[in-house]
Simulated assay, not measured.
Amino acid sequence: MSGVLVLARIRSRRPGGRPAGRGPSPERSLASHDNPAVNMGAVMPRLTCALGPDSAGDLLAGIIGGAADALDLAVYEVGPSYAGPIAAAASRGVRVRLLVDAHAGANAASARLLAGCGAEVRVWARRPAEAHWKLLVAGDATLAVGSGNLIARDAPHPAAGRPGTREWWLAANAAPALAACARAALEAAWGEADPPPAAWAGAVAEVPAVGVPRPAVAALEVDVDPGALELVTGGRAVTALLAARLGGVRHRALVTVPYVHPHVTAVAGLLRALAAAAGRGADARLLLGGVPEPADLAAVRGLGLGVRVMDPARSTTGHAKGAVLDGAAIAGSANWSGAGLGANLEAALAADDV
């Protein structure tokens, strides 16, 4: 990385003056576009939890379609099914900025579709880190963080009855300071990104088998306490968030990720924390999105963890990255890999007391 981002954590206080923030010290300097956690809220935000393929696509298309003045998107991959709504937003006068990763795939086609519509597009090519986050900011008070790309497979829209990968998104409105922090993280990466290249390099990712999960799960909307939301960006910051939350679990720790790489130090630490929660008597379970490598499965089972694997023949392939830890829900973009919990540009949003 050529840049270093320095951001102060902004901590809100719940009614009664109790600090709502958790985690590391209020201010620190971080490389690789990691920024400290931020807890925000002076008004009552509304939180929406949506799963894909059930309802996430409709949520995301609604945010894009409803943007009135500014729309910033930092997404690993964007396909033509979302390039159209993004172009429409730019055409109606919304200031649109799209930051995508430099890998080959749908991004090349979408960049061509967006050329000339007024949307600004930049590409993150600062390897070895990938721009793997899935982060949307609309206007000055709405943001969404999740696990899936803006492509038809991860977030079909309209969503009803259409196949796709299992995803998990959290969106908050009436959260202006949280949205400002998300936009600041995007701004820092934007400054190091480049215009779309003439030719896109790299192999196209393998397409997983997908199905239609039954029953379909409708989006859940709840009003949350002003201090209940915590945003982190950067793979290392996601690791710190998960480690801190797992360390305090007393009752349940339900984790879902596409896969785990137990040989990676950060992943091994989180798996040990999950096992420790089980040792304290918590209901600790791990749901993987697909069949793991035999060595990875053996390492997880060696910790005594309960493990299950999603089956596209019965449901769909899992691509969600999230956890329910006691009363908190966390959704994000980071895989449990060296890159996902390390140098990658990632994002996670935690909601307490839901």
Rank of each mutant, 00 (worst) to 15 (best):
L231E: 08
G234F: 04
D58W: 01
Y259N: 09
A184V: 10
R95F: 07
R122I: 01
A284W: 04
A152T: 14
A108F: 00
L51T: 11
D296E: 13
A343H: 09
A351F: 05
K134V: 10
A240P: 00
G318H: 11
A320Y: 10
L288K: 05
G65K: 02
R95M: 12
H261F: 05
A61G: 10
G211A: 07
A243H: 11
L30H: 11
P292M: 08
A268C: 08
G66M: 00
E77S: 15
T256F: 04
G148M: 13
L220V: 15
A339E: 11
E221H: 14
A240Q: 07
G289K: 08
G211K: 07
A282G: 06
I10S: 13
R92T: 08
A284T: 04
V232I: 06
A138H: 00
G52I: 04
D154V: 05
L241N: 02
D101C: 01
N173Y: 01
P80F: 00
R13E: 14
G318L: 09
I151C: 09
L325Y: 06
G248M: 09
L254N: 02
P158N: 10
M44R: 15
G79P: 02
T317L: 04
L341I: 01
L5C: 06
G84R: 15
A175G: 02
I10R: 14
L113C: 09
A172G: 03
L297F: 04
E192Q: 14
A160R: 13
L5F: 13
G191Q: 12
L242I: 05
V217M: 12
S110A: 15
I330T: 08
L341T: 01
L178W: 02
G164C: 10
V100Y: 01
A42S: 14
A328K: 09
T48I: 13
P163A: 08
T142E: 06
V264E: 15
G16F: 09
G118T: 04
R22L: 08
A351M: 15
G23A: 11
I63G: 01
R28I: 07
L60H: 02
A61N: 10
R236L: 10
H132A: 15
V232H: 00
M310L: 15
G84W: 05
A131L: 15
S29M: 10
A185E: 11
A155L: 14
A282L: 07
T265W: 09
G164Q: 06
G62D: 05
G118N: 03
P258A: 12
L297S: 08
L349H: 06
P19C: 07
A189P: 00
P196A: 03
L271K: 02
L150G: 01
R301Q: 15
A188T: 06
A68D: 12
G16S: 10
A198M: 04
G290K: 11
A331V: 14
A61I: 01
S110K: 03
V96G: 06
L231C: 10
A159G: 06
A185V: 09
